[in-house]
Nucleic acid binder design. Structure first.
Lengths: 224, 224
DNA sequence: TCCGAGTAACCGAACGTTCGGTAGGCCGAT
DNA sequence: ATCGGCCTACCGAACGTTCGGTTACTCGGA
């Protein structure tokens, strides 16, 4: 038994937390649709009926993960940007914090980015996640627009540029390994350099987000 | 009825092609696991049993889409790179052709990039797709390694850099719209500039892939 | 004695897949 | 020209299985 599997089946630990951790693990690995309640139950050492003692439904479980995850990202980003002025500095902090969040929470972020479509169209939960995501993306829109207005950024298409940069950052969850050749700080610095080059900002030293201010995504499964 | 829906239910058109087109549409929208044979049948105007006259199984259908899609990408890339020397030129062609392929075939590429995990682990089909994908990624590995060896690229971590750039290119399928603010040529040129900046290549004019050499992915559903 | 946490057994619905059957077209022999 | 035989392309109905979810019950601890 791996340490993770041992933790997930530990009857002394909080069951709601174990279920959410297992859900992130399985949803990230197999996808929401391909994960059954019985998969989840087996992973936490219960029967399928036991799951329903802690969770109202499979979709409510996903919705809970998505909403709280996005809330964490939005709140942490507000903290990271607090009091920082200058479009280049703010964009650098957005790039580095999004990158680091995905590198440090690859499974949770994979579910957050990839399983939105699994929520029932028109549901209140979906609307809530979309509202949170829009609020987050507005930070990026603002940063790019400010830079262009101030004359420090020069971009052909603001939306295209923003999406390309955000994609680069979120993609980190697919490949980053802490035991790879680059440290997380190196990755963040590299991505900030690429991002600022993409908006043709003058090259100069720029800050990296304080890793202690990043969102706490409490059901990210520990690495095995 | 949209033109697409009309085509998909047209009994005069080849059924195998209509089924594959509908499969790409639904797999891209809802995911493979969440798409049922009955969804597929309804989309092409048949019963679920009728589908099995043209396709041996749901998974074989997915495998067929993935294998032929990756074959197309590998073959087209060989054509695009044929006779081109110089690491910067070759990287520029890789970036622009991957970007354009994703922009022009968003649904097929989304299935190709996102539904590999739906194939049965250990199956021959999965091994075939992985072999094709590895062959494709080797083109990128070679281009980056060549540039570093020739001294024209300066990169901290080759694998990290390659993955970041490939992610940027493949992400195009998620947001590119032909009626947006940028033309496909502008997007490609922009991404080439970003990519070459990422490897610290000296700035100079670089080629864009000839769009007529791109892979033909015959079941990409026409835009609605 | 009561309650939180769990189980065994079960439900209706939906799943991928298979089966027997049939409508309509082609084709060589009559 | 027409008939029998065969083929492609599908349909209606059902198969066994598995799904998300429910019900009735058990049991250890406060």
């Amino acid at each position: 038994m791996t340490p993770l599997a041992t933790y997930l089946t530990d009857r002394d630990a909080d069951a709601g937390l174990r279920i959410r951790t297992a859900a992130v693990l399985l949803f990230a690995r197999q996808g929401y649709a391909a994960t059954t309640i019985r998969d989840l139950a087996r992973t936490v050492g219960m029967t399928n009926a036991g799951i329903y003692h802690h969770v109202p439904s499979k979709e409510a479980l996903l919705a809970d993960l998505l909403i709280s995850g996005h809330q964490g990202l939005v709140e942490a980003t507000a903290t990271v940007l607090d009091g920082v002025s200058g479009a280049a500095e703010r964009l650098a902090l957005l790039i580095s914090s999004l990158t680091a969040t995905h590198a440090l929470n690859p499974l949770t972020t994979r579910v957050m980015d990839g399983e939105l479509r699994a929520l029932t169209p028109g549901s209140a939960a979906l609307a809530e996640v979309i509202a949170l995501r829009d609020a987050y993306e507005d930070r990026w829109r603002q940063a790019v627009a400010d830079g262009v207005r101030e004359g420090v950024f020069h971009v052909a298409d603001q939306k295209l540029t923003r999406l390309a940069l955000m994609t680069m950052c979120t993609g980190t969850s697919e490949w980053y390994r802490p035991d790879g050749d680059s440290t997380l700080e190196q990755v963040c610095a590299e991505f900030v350099a690429i991002g600022l080059a993409a908006v043709r900002a003058p090259a100069r030293p720029l800050p990296i987000a304080d890793l202690s201010l990043l969102p706490d995504l409490p059901w990210e499964p520990p690495r095995d």
